[in-house]
Nucleic acid binder design. Structure first.
Lengths: 207, 207
DNA sequence: ATCTGAATTGTGGATATCCACAACCCATGC
DNA sequence: GCATGGGTTGTGGATATCCACAATTCAGAT
C-alpha cells in the first residue's frame, strides 16, 4: 500500500487548501471531516502520516489521538491547531505525537514535517517487517524445536539440553539441525544475533 | 555522586522558593543565577536533573540547552517559563528536553516531573554503566584477541579464522580461550549476546 | 484405514572444540 | 642482560558437533 497523508479537519476550507498543497507536492491526501469518520476508516495497515486538527465538532483531535494510542496506531501524528496552548502541545508530544504546529502555518514548513513523518513511518515499517518475518520463521518451528532453541540461546550444550528435556542427545541434534535450517542460520552465534534484534535493547527517552 | 536538582534561574525569589520546595521533599538542590555560571560549573558527572528557566539576562535557557546538547549532557532538562509559546515548547521537546512547564506551576506536579526525570537519569546511568564496564573489558583484550572475537561473532569456525588471519588453528584456540576468559563468558553464544546489548537495536522516536 | 508430520532414538564416522603441557620469537622496559 | 608480556605453534586426548542412513511411535487429517 502506498503512503498517504491522512487529514482530519472539520473545516472544509482547510481540507481543500491542504489537500491542494499536498497534491501539488505529489503526496496522496485522504481527507476526513471528523474524528469519528477517520476512526471508522482506520486500519492498522495505513501508512504515511496523520494530520490532525484539535478543535473539531464532536470528538476532538486529542480524544482521537488517545483512541489511536489504545489501538497501537503506528501512524505518526502531526497536530494542527489554531488555539493550542503550551500544556496541550507538551502533553501531545510526550504521548508520542510527531509534531504540533500552529495555524497559520508555513506551507513549506508543514510539507517538510509531513515528509519527515512519512520517512519515520517508513523506517518503522521496515523494522516491523523484518521483525514480522522473523516471527513467522519462529512460528514455523515445532514446539520441541522452540524449546531446544531457547536452551541453545541460553548457551547450553546439547548434552545438557538433552538432560533438561529428558530426551536423547541425538534427538537434540536433530531438532537443532532442523531449527537452524528453518531459521536460515548455520551456527548458534548467527541464531543468537538473529534473535537479539527482536529483544532489542534500545535506550529510548522518557521510558 | 548523589543526585541533585540543578536549578538555573536569574530570579532570586524563584531560586529560594523552589529550593525550599525541593529540600522539603528531601531533594538536593543546587541553584545557579545564570546560564553562564551553570555552564562553567557543568560537568559530565552531574546526575539528577536540570530545571532551566528560559527568559534570563544574558544567555537564555534555550541557548544553554543548545550548548549542553553539544556537550552531550546526559541530564534530563525541565524547562520552566512564564512566557513560553507553543513553537518554543515543541522545539525544546523535539530536541530532547524532558518537559516544559509554565509558571505558575503546581508544586506537586513539578516535584513529580522532577522525580520522573531523576528516575530517567538513573536508568540511563545504569545502562551507561553496564555499557562502560563492557567497553573496559573489551579494552583489556589484545589486538589479536579483538580480531579473533570479531570473526567469532561473524559465526566463523576456528579453521576459517586461522586462514583469514594467516595463523594456525591452535593459536586461534588460544586467543579464543583467553578472550572468553577476559570477557567472562563460557560460550560463543554468550559472547554474542553480551556484545549485542551494545549494538542496541532500539526503535526510538523521531529518528 | 492410510497418510502425513512431529517426536523420538540409534550407529558410526568426519569435524570441531576444549584444554593441559611445553616451547619459541620478539619487542619493551628495567 | 634479563624479565615480562603478547603472539605464535605443536602434541595428544577428552568432548562436542555435524551429518547420512535407518527406524519406531503417536496424533491428527483425508
Amino acid at each position: 500500500m502506498t503512503q498517504h497523508v491522512y487529514l482530519v479537519d472539520d473545516d472544509e476550507a482547510i481540507r481543500d487548501s491542504l489537500g491542494w498543497l499536498l497534491q501539488s507536492r505529489n503526496l496522496n491526501c485522504q481527507a476526513y471531516a471528523s474524528a469519528e469518520s477517520f476512526l471508522d476508516a482506520w486500519q492498522m495497515e495505513m501508512t504515511g502520516c496523520l494530520l490532525l486538527d484539535i478543535r473539531m465538532k464532536g470528538m476532538s483531535g486529542l480524544e482521537l489521538f488517545d483512541r489511536l494510542l489504545e489501538l497501537n496506531n503506528p501512524l505518526p501524528v502531526i497536530f494542527l491547531t489554531g488555539h493550542g496552548d503550551v500544556p496541550m502541545a507538551v502533553g501531545a508530544l510526550k504521548k508520542g505525537a510527531f509534531d504540533f504546529v500552529e495555524k497559520p502555518f508555513d506551507d513549506n514548513e508543514l510539507v517538510n514535517r509531513v515528509l519527515e513523518a512519512m520517512q519515520l513511518d517508513q523506517n518503522r515499517r521496515a523494522v516491523a517487517a523484518s521483525s514480522d518475518s522473523l516471527n513467522s520463521l519462529i512460528e514455523k518451528l515445532t514446539t520441541r524445536e522452540r524449546q531446544v532453541m531457547e536452551l541453545i540461546l541460553a548457551g547450553k550444550f546439547n548434552k545438557v539440553i538433552a538432560d533438561e528435556l529428558s530426551i536423547s542427545m541425538r534427538t537434540v541434534e536433530v531438532h537443532r539441525a532442523n531449527l537452524f535450517e528453518k531459521m536460515g542460520v548455520r551456527t548458534a552465534v548467527e541464531l543468537s544475533q538473529l534473535m537479539s534484534v527482536r529483544t532489542g535493547a534500545g535506550i529510548n527517552n522518557h521510558g
